[in-house]
Design a protein around this nucleic acid. Sequence first.
DNA 1: TGCCCGATTAACT
DNA 2: GTTAATCGGGCAA
Length: 195
Amino acid sequence: MPNRIGRAFFSRSVQAVAPDLVGTTLLVGGVGGLVVEVEAYHHTDPAAHSFHGPTPRNAVMFGPPGYAYVYRSYGIHWCLNFVCEPEGSAAAVLIRALAPTVGLTRMRRRRGVAAERLLCSGPGRLCEALRVTGALDGCALDEPPFEILSRAQAVEVVAGPRIGITKAIDKPWRYGLKGSPFLSKPLPQTRRRRA
DNA sequence: TGCCCGATTAACT
DNA sequence: GTTAATCGGGCAA
């Protein structure tokens, strides 16, 4: 049986935590699914929000690991991150996609779409489906409404370049569940050959 | 103070 | 392939 993941899990480097998160189950208020895609960010990384130092928005990133950093993207969507490493590293893992398993009806209602593939395949979509908003910024990941369960079985993780950024695009810090149809975009190893 | 841009998505052409 | 929706931060003036 999967166990609930504790706060200590997050006090390692983002490069270690991010691939380990693939295959775990994320629930918010009892709704969610299997984590299939994440990205790692660190304050030494020009693409990270914490790169230019603390601000009111990214303050949680500079705090202790094991907490949620939620921010608004493009003024419209919410994005969910898990703060990692010892306090002050300002490192976090962006949750980019889930394979929905629990609460499908609620997710469809919140998202306004029926297709399972479109419920949680993308950072903004997953937050809408799980009802993650700025209200959860700074909340502990080992307390309600969050629930993160360890892998039920071994998984194959694939790494590739991150998505939607313009800086440090060469860093292969995106991790995904190999072959999952719920990835927001295919990873290099799973991409189909172009015609 | 004002202007530009971004870890996005969906609805266009 | 392009564009609008629209918020917070960085940077120039």
